[in-house]
Computed example of a mutant assay.
Amino acid sequence: MNPNMQGKGELYLQGQWQQDTSAVQKQLVTFSRYEMKFDCDSFYVQIHSQSKVNYGSDTCMRSGHWAEYVKGAYRQRNDTLFLKGQFCNADFSLKTNSDCFRVGPYEEFFKISKKADSLVQLSGTSNVIPINLHLIKRTTCTQKPL
Rank of each mutant, 00 (worst) to 15 (best):
A73S: 11
Y44A: 06
Y34E: 10
K95N: 09
I129K: 01
K8L: 12
K114R: 14
L119W: 03
V45W: 05
K137W: 01
R102A: 12
F110Q: 00
S57H: 02
R62I: 00
K8G: 07
F43C: 02
S22M: 09
V103C: 03
N54W: 01
N89T: 10
T142G: 07
K114E: 02
E35I: 13
F82A: 01
C100E: 05
L81M: 12
F101T: 06
T30E: 09
Q121R: 14
T142S: 14
N97F: 03
V120Q: 05
V24L: 10
D79M: 08
S126D: 07
R33I: 15
T80I: 12
Q16H: 13
R33W: 00
S32K: 11
H65G: 00
H134Y: 14
A73N: 03
G7C: 04
S93N: 12
K111F: 11
K84A: 15
S123N: 13
D41K: 01
D58N: 15
D58E: 10
L83Y: 09
S51W: 09
K8E: 15
K144Y: 04
T140A: 13
I131M: 07
L28A: 12
K26F: 10
F110H: 03
K114I: 15
A116E: 09
L122K: 08
C40G: 04
W17P: 01
G15F: 14
Q19C: 10
K111I: 13
T59Y: 09
D39F: 06
C141W: 03
N89D: 14
Q6V: 04
A90D: 13
K137M: 03
S22N: 11
D117M: 00
Y34D: 08
Y12G: 00
F87A: 09
Q143W: 00
H134K: 12
Q46H: 11
K115Q: 14
I112S: 05
K84P: 01
G7Q: 06
L13W: 06
Q14T: 05
D41M: 03
T80G: 02
C40T: 06
R138G: 01
N78T: 12
P105R: 15
